[in-house]
Design a protein around this nucleic acid. Sequence first.
RNA 1: GGCCGGUUCGUCUAUCGGUUAGGACAGCCCCCUUUCACGGGGCAAAGACGGGUUCGAUUCCCGUACCGGCUACCA
Length: 532
Amino acid sequence: MIYICSMDKKVRVRFAPSPTGGLHLGGVRTVLFNYLFAKKHGGDFIVRIEDTDQTRFVEGAEAYIFNTLAWCGLTPDESPLHGGPYAPYRQSERKPIYKQYAQQLVDAGFAYYAFDTPEDLEQMRVQYKTAENPSPQYNHALRTKMRNSLTLSAAEVTELLADGTPHVVRIKMPLDETVSFTDMIRGEVSFNTAQVDDKVLLKADGMPTYHLAVVVDDYLMKITHAFRGEEWLPSAPVHILLWQYLGWSADMPQWAHLPLILKPDGNGKLSKRDGDRLGFPVFAMDWTDPKTGETTIGFKERGFLPQAFVNLLALLGWNDGTDNEVFTIEELITAFSMERVHKGGAKFNYEKALWYNQEWIKRATSAQLADQVAETFAAAGFAGFDSAANGVAGSNAVAADRVLLLRVIDLIKDRCTLMADFVTQGAFFFVSPSEFDTASIQPKWTEQKNMFFIELFKAFESSIVWEAHDLENTFKEISAAHHLKPGELMLPLRIMLVGGKFGPGVFEIAEIIGKQATVNRIQKVLRILEHQ
RNA sequence: GGCCGGUUCGUCUAUCGGUUAGGACAGCCCCCUUUCACGGGGCAAAGACGGGUUCGAUUCCCGUACCGGCUACCA
């Protein structure tokens, strides 16, 4: 399939979100596919804010979108934030532009003024509603029954306009034409114009609807490829016609309608509510609704690495035809192709998402993970991690902390799926466990074992070298002397040091936490056992 | 209801007419591991249905069923 129209045309794609709330999985994936396509073809990725609906505008949503893109590493080439030659990139700031084109369409007879009030429309829907037609359309049939410049006399229209009567501009859909286009993912798709209604192009407040704005801005911003969610497919004929009516057919972008991301259970589009209900994030980052103050968890805060997040999104509805599932962003850019995007929607599977994150943690080096792990510890209330996080230069203490942190990360990262797991898996390296799983020791605890551990901590206390394998030898010698099998003693020792039945090798742990902490923890648990 | 789109293991998917229909996640089993993981090995699991076209259909065409999207002065 050929999708570069003219050879010298630079690829330009756009992501055009409405600032109405948090950015969810589907939105970020649309960004990603746009970005991958643009970068693969050496093109530009533009972010345009579609804030034409003032009633749905939410404070902070735009900033949130840019924060999300930054976290994902999907940097726009042009946007209201990054600037660019086609500014402004916020539709609310482009208001006069749309009016001009709406006027052009009316003048050419492709659109008309409609003076119907919301009440009129409501009445129309009730009046013409039947069993066969539960949702009557403002279309070629019904427009003759409404108050618009098609039914009113020219004089009336002029007067209404002169009086400043609230009105909208609607597209005049042709009676019976076939509109077809080639979708990069779906191939040829066609519609009969009789089936689509006379969409509002310009609202009474002078703002364009999506339909007009997307066409005008895509043209003005020289967009070559327009990718969006499948939910837009039904209105594609309106957009195609608008490109024609405005005389821009030759510049119309190639379209691709992306498959939807579906609920894991049941059916339907994945929504924020599904995340709340099933206990996983749907938004990329935490989103706090400014009105309710309610915060919805994001993938970032849940402990996902941005690389993993991008990776799992890319593989939701696309693959390169091989068995490879783990890709860096660079690898995605080279491997990506719109033709390999699926037609059908994909049910989101959180288990698989977790696997991607685990995979990325495993593959990352401790140095790559260090800052984020330190942040995670700091966020969990552990003291002394802020400086490690920032890697403040100079101080030897900080350098030592960092070496320790890297060692700990190496030891535990294979056991971590989410960033928070570093805390549950590694906290005991930095602080004594607050709880000890003595219930797992108790049943088989004997005075003989008690004696063993008393001797063990004394031996540890007086040892000169503090190194894992020496500690293990000491441990084995004493257990032999007490006629105890090391196997029976390993678990108690582990619980004494880490608090539970998990973690890396006990002697490595002992080496890292040091003599004092090791001895203290053994004594502490011995005392607990004594009182039980 | 209408229009449009979709349909391979439970889930994400590979297959460009000829395969014992492959991989991954999840599940189960075994090995490794004096813990928990990682890792290694294995088991189980799929072409919605009915017609065509063809020597041969998961693959191409038609119909049916089912699922989804849209059907706002929201995007």
